[in-house]
Amino acid sequence: MDPIAPLSKVGEWGPNALIIAAGLLGVGFGFVLERAGFGNARTLAGQWYGYNFAVLRVMFTAIVVAMVGLFGLWYLGVVDLSAVYVNDTFLWPQIVGGVIFGIGFGVGQYCPGTAVVACATGKIDAITFMGGFFVGLIAFFFSYDTIAPFYASSSMGRVMLHEWLGVPAGVVVLAVVVVALGAFGLTHVIDRRFALKRGTS
């Protein structure tokens, strides 16, 4: 059977339908981020100091669920994977940008999505985070000419892990599930260590 999704592409939706879809998805996104505790920097900081692994658990669970769902639906012929947007790879800018982003995350204890939710629930530190973010964007704009060659470097286009490794998609999907489960287990071992330490001291 022919794929029926992505619905907006197969059904050739107009702009208004997409606007409504984007808004509703955003509501779900913001709602869940807040429920996960990500509207508060204290939850997010726990990731780096080992007192709360919500960031890793929520993120990897979400990746696994969405990945298994997406590739499962593709396997069943429901989703046309080639019509799903996959981020283009610019390897080195993404690695360097990732490290810088991680440093900013560690200093500010928000990322853009969580800061927006935290602002929406009145966290004043999230408001200054967004202020800094805004200024950081302006700084990027005005330094763009200088860094443009690096920004455009190591361009690899649309590359998925299994294509890069030359293995079937299922192998990578399974590997990600296994790694995620291993990471979850590890966080619980660390939790137990912390609990023991507190109990004995």
Binding site: G97, I100, F101, I103, A126, T128, G131, F134, G136
Partner: peptide
């Protein structure tokens, strides 16, 4: 928080995206 926002904005633009 403001400093972290500044730094992560630069990183996010360089990497073409953020955590989401």
């Amino acid at each position: 928080a403001a400093l972290g926002g500044f730094i992560s904005a630069y990183g996010a633009r360089l990497a073409r995206g953020c955590t989401s």
